[in-house]
Design a protein around this nucleic acid. Structure first.
Lengths: 202, 202
DNA sequence: GTCTATATCCAGATAGAC
DNA sequence: GTCTATCTGGATATAGAC
């Protein structure tokens, strides 16, 4: 590939990213069905027809975003598991990082909203549903393993690890929805209150 | 109004209820935009045209359902507050009843899903948004008052009552979404784990 | 009250000029 | 690569017969 071909490829990728960024914003705010392809094009400041030079359909844009959401989320989960610290500390760090991300980073909040919608809706396209089914267990499994390890060393409270892991993600997803409902100035519950659900002390 | 006029009115109301029940099911499962008026008619086993003899538009059906959701929820909240028991006990009962309702009663779960979607989406019709803005604070206020009373008598943990109330509803809404994602056979976290977020002991 | 048929509109996707 | 114009399908809502 020559110099200019490379540059063209880079520009093409940038354009794709730009479209995806706009689409993430709109899909998170309105959902798949209520987001019009024309809205995405307008907000991205390109003609509607041009959008189809970068993506073959609305569903494919959506799929791409969901794929990205799971990539980030699952990579972060596995990264957390590998960190060199005791399990109880991992739970605390994860809660702090997730709540901070949800509060301060708009795209983070949008990704959580997106997956929550897509996972809960029967209107989600089949291709996306298949992806979700393949990926959605990872965060639960990781958190259950961390909790189990924490119970062995006494830093995490007793209780079924799977159920506690469910509770962990229920909290995070609930916070994301809450933020979407009440706006960025919402009153986040203190992390300390969340931590005592899981940790024996502190 | 004569006898038969009354009977006709009753039949008309029943028909309306039947349509609303179907609409609740579909809106909760797919959201407003992805639910087609034709789907509602088909599932209610009536012609699409006939539906418009009972409701003037899709948005009005949606509005009606959201109104019903808030009526039930806010009535339940105010009823809870009036119960003759100590505040800590009210928190425990509320959690137990809500989790049980979410787990066992499909329509309860659907109502929570519906309001969660409608509140979080910018695509929600203006009329519905106005209703939501007028009603949504009630459950938070009620719970904050109960928590404040519980802190005075020592049964509820310390912490900002508003923030704890947010946490309470974040949990409930999170559970509703979780159930929608994983189906009725989902692993509900034990109520005991939720209770210790709020109560000093037990 | 209930249906079938249809008007109308809107949105996703394509064609083709530049 | 980018645009404008357009095709096409589908969905809301209405008309009108029974």
């Amino acid at each position: 590939m020559g110099r200019s071909a490379e540059r063209n490829q880079r520009m093409r990728d940038e354009r794709r990213e730009q479209i995806l960024a706009v689409a993430l914003e709109l899909f998170a705010a309105r959902g798949l069905a209520a987001t019009k392809i024309g809205d995405i094009a307008r907000r991205a400041r390109i003609a509607q027809g041009l959008l189809y030079h970068y993506f073959p359909s609305k569903d494919v844009i959506y799929l791409e975003l969901i794929r990205g959401a799971f990539e980030r989320m699952n990579a972060a989960a596995r990264g957390l598991e590998k960190l060199p610290m005791p399990p109880g500390e991992k739970v605390r760090r994860a809660l702090e990082a997730l709540v901070a991300g949800l509060t301060e980073n708009d795209d983070t909040a949008r990704y959580y909203l997106l997956t929550a919608q897509a996972s809960a809706s029967e209107a989600t396209p089949r291709t996306v549903q298949a992806l979700i089914r393949a990926e959605r267990a990872v965060p639960y499994e990781v958190m259950a393993r961390i909790i189990r390890a924490g119970q062995r060393d006494g830093s995490v409270r007793e209780g079924d690890p799977e159920e506690l892991a469910v509770l962990f993600w229920v909290l995070i997803r609930g916070l994301a929805i809450h933020r979407a409902t009440w706006g960025p100035g919402f009153r986040a519950p203190p992390v300390s209150a969340l931590i005592r659900v899981f940790l024996s002390e502190g």
